[in-house]
Amino acid sequence: MELNYVQHIQEAAQWISDQIGRRPLQIGLVLGSGLGDLAHQVENPITIPYDRVPHFPVSTVEGHAGQFVIGELEGKSVIVMQGRFHYYEGYSMKKVVFPIYVMKQLGVQALVITNAAGGMNRSFAAGDLMLIEDHLNMTGDNPLIGLHHPELGVRFPDMSQAYTRSYRELAKSIADQMSAERGESVRVQSGVYAGITGPNYLPPAELTMLAKLGGDAIGMSTVGEVVAASHAGLKVLGMSCITDMAIGEELEPLTHEQVVAVANRTKPVFIELVKRFVGQVEV
């Protein structure tokens, strides 16, 4: 696959472009577990299941619809991933990030990437949103390992500003405005996302370790995609929906259904914040 990686990206992007017949897209959105309903807000939508796109993997996780929704959102042309691919599904990290490079080929300049995450910071609460400032890649893998493809980016990309500061500041300003309008606080935190392979939820000792290393939230996605986005020169807003508290010393049993349920309750605020961000961000 590595020898044909760029060719496959180009073929997938060309196939999608042929289906939509539109101007280059501006913003890509990757929607995590339980957060896919934002795609229903897209106007003049064209829906493309992943299994129709050449060389694409298929999403196998409950809560992930497994399709692109392409159209307009708040005056911007967008491509929405309604569901993503995960390392724990058995895909290589290069396959996990394949859609990021495809979106870049389609003209995307900015990426909004979301996930459901466990809160390791004691000041957080289930239902909070967290703007990602940085991440810990605890997967033991990296999508850039292997053959270098200069068409995709430089060999040693800088990650010092992987999560675009001005995007976080805009999102926080929007959340403050929403709080004023609602007369109640829209709880938006900031912190470090620890990305693990999954698919198991971590035991208490490992959660305690990651919190001591500086992690504020933990999940099974995002880090590889953001590495690829930095490699491709995309600006990134990363946002986690804190669906449960993952504090090692106080850990309680957790199921995927519980994660999706909390994400569903948080959706109205999440959708409103992302929509306003898309409308206001300059790309």
Rank of each mutant, 00 (worst) to 15 (best):
A205K: 04
G127K: 08
Y163L: 11
K95E: 08
I196N: 00
Y88E: 07
E151Q: 15
V186K: 10
L152C: 13
I196Y: 00
G75H: 10
L170D: 04
N137E: 04
G183M: 08
G198T: 03
G75F: 12
V112P: 13
V192G: 09
S166M: 14
M103E: 04
G140T: 08
A126K: 12
Y167Q: 00
I100A: 12
L131N: 11
G191N: 04
M178Y: 03
G107H: 00
K94V: 02
E133P: 02
P204E: 12
Q189C: 14
A125K: 14
L144F: 03
N142W: 06
T139N: 06
Q161L: 13
I132V: 14
E184C: 05
N200L: 07
P143D: 06
I174T: 06
E72D: 15
G118N: 11
I174G: 02
I196W: 00
T114D: 10
A180C: 14
T114N: 11
Q82P: 11
Y193N: 01
G195P: 06
R122C: 12
N121L: 11
P150F: 05
D128C: 10
P199A: 03
L152E: 06
L111E: 12
G83I: 13
V96K: 02
N121V: 11
L131D: 07
S92L: 11
T139R: 02
E89G: 04
I132P: 02
P143E: 04
T139D: 00
P203R: 05
L106V: 12
V80C: 08
I196R: 00
M81V: 13
A125I: 04
A175P: 06
V96N: 04
F156R: 01
G107R: 02
R122Q: 15
G198I: 01
R155M: 11
E89H: 09
N137P: 08
Y87M: 07
D134A: 14
T139H: 01
R165S: 11
A117C: 13
Q105T: 14
N115C: 09
G183A: 07
A205S: 13
